[in-house]
Design a protein around this nucleic acid. Structure first.
Length: 488
RNA sequence: CGGGAUGUAGCUCAGUCCGGUAGAGUACUCGUCUGGGGGGCGAGUGGUCGCAGGUUCAAAUCCUGUCAUCCCGACCA
């Protein structure tokens, strides 16, 4: 076990916290439930963000920015929406402080009470649809394909770095369409974008599905989700895309004139992923030595360590390699710190999840080789100097693929089928993981199962095969299996 | 929001029961010997003991309040 990191076996939660802290991803802050995202953690998020942003642009979206504050009355316009978020809203009631008359710091000035209180956005549907009302008159104004990168606040009872914090960073796409079909297609398209991002960039396999009515976003008609399995076999919802129907158009009176000069309500979608993805990334790949990052998202892809310390002849080779690797498109860090010893640097680079490490010592120079080590397997080999760049390129692809394959295998190894209640309960209790089981389609059954086992329906998989069966709990007829799991 | 635990040096913690000059390891700084997986020796820097009240000649220690964090539950991206 690495210094200062609890093993996963010993205490999974503590392991996660140790990784976040020791790898320099985030710190706790002075504010309850909020974290400070440190440079290394933010760099990972930035890489995610840049890639996602490019994918949104490719699919025709543009960025905009809407206010942090939402008039309280807006939130109540859509009944289900307010019900979903009311319990976790931060509210601004005043706009001024004053010196404490008792001479102790400052207090809220009671004179400065707001006419209408403002809610710090937990999500932006309401303020955005209030705005869209002014932007949309004709079918020619549609579709409206807008995304925003923002922070939101949800006053959570219990928080964990990245996975659930009171304030978090995310993107929220909000689109408006002239037809139901087009809106559904949009929601499905972005669902697919999320799945592709998760698998191709995060190397995190996901199951695409739709949420049950009970788990659906407040105000949505359909919620598409990507669900991933973490190393403790619990499910994590990694991204959602919602078909909102005409609910928000109705609530905010957003209509357009169609080709036939008839007034119609606009169709809507919204979709988002958050800094929670950083937590997902950690829990998918990392080990007891520290963070493991897929090369495509690693802020530093290659580190170079001089053995035993920087020296002229080592520098020469190291700088040249650094240069060549940078030209090949990789981010490189030559660790010239002469206060730290090689072993320390090895441990530190592993802790931070740098995918490939090169070590260069005098013995290597004499043989014209470099020691190349990969983070995911710990495997080391000597590579002739003139083949290092090619080797690194090969490893980048190989590590990316092998992380994905390993995660797929883990998920498969921990996926079960249950056909009786006894079996179901036993698997959830003893094995964990995903359980494919028949469900009668009622919220009542879903809640009863949750109550007894803590497992929820993560999704109804899109690719599930039609299979008549009996509900694992009620015995009533079922059209196909859904995925149950304990979830974050 | 319920149950449990914890706040003392940058970090990990002792000291608190039984009040009496603020401790250790680690990190950091300097020197030195080292150097292919988290070095050794020597010297040094660093703390209004989470915060606010109270009791007392005297509070890290006792009392009250408050804030924060962690673990377990309920809720949730």
């Amino acid at each position: 076990m690495s210094k200062g990191i609890t093993s996963r076996e010993q205490n999974y939660s503590q392991w996660y916290n140790d990784i976040v802290k020791r790898a320099g991803l985030a710190d706790h802050s002075a504010v309850r439930g909020c974290m400070v995202i440190k440079p290394h953690g933010y760099a990972v998020w930035e890489n995610m963000k840049n890639q996602l942003d490019a994918m949104f642009k490719e699919t025709g979206h543009v960025n905009a920015y809407f206010p942090l504050f939402i008039p309280k009355s807006f939130l109540s316009r859509e009944a289900e929406h307010v019900e979903g978020f009311a319990k976790e809203c931060a509210v601004v009631t005043h706009h001024r402080l004053m010196n404490d008359p008792n001479g102790k710091g400052v207090v809220v000035d009671p004179e400065a009470k707001l006419e209408e209180e403002l809610v710090v956005r937990p999500t932006s549907e309401t303020i955005i649809w209030n705005t869209y009302k002014d932007w949309i008159q004709s079918y020619r104004d549609l579709p409206l394909l807008i995304n925003q990168w923002a922070n939101v606040v949800r006053w959570e009872m219990r928080t964990r770095p990245f996975l659930r914090t009171a304030e978090f960073l995310w993107q929220e796409g909000h689109t408006a369409h002239s037809s139901k079909n087009e809106a559904v297609e949009e929601a499905e398209k972005m669902h697919e974008v999320y799945a592709r991002f998760a698998e191709d960039y995060m190397a995190m396999p996901v199951i695409k599905g739709v949420k049950t009515a009970n788990e659906r976003f407040a105000g949505a008609l359909e919620t598409y989700t990507i669900e991933a399995m973490m190393q403790d076999k619990k499910a994590l919802q990694a991204g959602t895309s919602h078909f909102l129907g005409q609910n928000f158009a109705k609530a905010f009176d957003v209509t357009f004139l169609n080709e036939n000069n008839k007034e119609e309500l606009v169709w809507a979608t919204s979709w988002g992923v958050s800094t929670r993805l950083v937590g997902a990334l950690i829990m998918t790949h990392s080990d007891d030595q520290g963070l493991v990052l897929p090369p495509k998202l690693a802020p530093i892809q290659v580190s170079i360590v001089p053995i035993p310390k920087p020296a002229e002849e080592i520098d020469k080779v190291a700088y040249q390699l650094e240069d060549e690797l940078k030209k090949a498109g990789y981010s490189v860090f030559y660790d010239r710190d002469d206060k730290k010893r090689p072993g320390f640097k090895f441990a530190e680079h592993e802790l931070k999840g740098i995918p490939v490490r090169l070590a260069i010592g005098k013995r290597d120079l004499a043989n014209k080789v470099v020691e190349v080590a990969r983070r995911d397997t710990g495997e080391k080999q000597s590579v002739p100097l003139d083949q290092v760049v090619a080797k690194v390129s090969e490893l980048m692809v190989d590590i990316q693929n092998s992380l994905f394959n390993k995660a797929v295998k883990f998920r498969e190894d921990n996926t079960h089928y249950a056909d009786s209640w006894e079996e179901f309960e036993k698997i959830i209790k003893n094995e964990g993981g995903f359980v494919y089981a028949h469900w009668d389609g009622t919220t009542e059954t879903e809640l009863a199962i949750k109550d007894r086992t803590k497992a929820t329906i993560r999704c109804i998989p899109l690719d599930r095969k039609e299979e008549k069966g009996k509900c694992v709990f009620s015995g009533k007829p079922s059209e196909g299996r859904v995925i149950f799991a304990k979830a974050y």
